[in-house]
Simulated assay, not measured.
Amino acid sequence: MGLFTRMELMVRSKANKLLDRHEDPREILDYSYQKQLELVQQVKRSVATVVTAKKRLELQKVKLEQNTQKLDRQAKDAISSGRDDLARLALERKKSNTIEIESLIMQINEQELEQQKLIETERKLSAKITAFRTKKETIKAQYTAAEAQVKVKEAVTGISEEMADVGFAIQRAEDKTEGMRAKSSALDEMVELGALDEIGGDDDIERELRKVQTTAGVDDDLARLKAEMGK
Results as ranks from 00 to 15, higher is better:
L209Q: 15
Q213L: 08
G82K: 01
S185E: 15
D221K: 03
Q36M: 14
L118A: 07
S160F: 00
K117D: 05
A182Q: 14
K70I: 09
K151I: 03
L187K: 05
E100M: 01
Q34Y: 12
D175R: 14
T98L: 02
L64K: 12
R181G: 09
E162T: 13
G82H: 06
D188V: 13
D20Q: 07
A195F: 00
S96R: 14
T68S: 14
I99F: 03
M180Y: 11
I101W: 05
Q213W: 01
E8G: 06
E110H: 14
L37R: 14
E110F: 08
E102G: 07
L91H: 11
R12I: 04
V150H: 14
L225W: 00
T214P: 01
A186K: 13
I28K: 11
V43T: 02
H22F: 01
A127Q: 10
S103V: 03
K128G: 07
K17H: 05
H22G: 00
R56C: 08
E65S: 09
T130P: 05
V218D: 05
R133T: 03
T215N: 00
T52I: 04
E120H: 14
Q69V: 01
K176I: 12
A148E: 11
L29Q: 01
Q116V: 05
R88N: 11
E23C: 06
L225S: 03
R21S: 11
V50A: 00
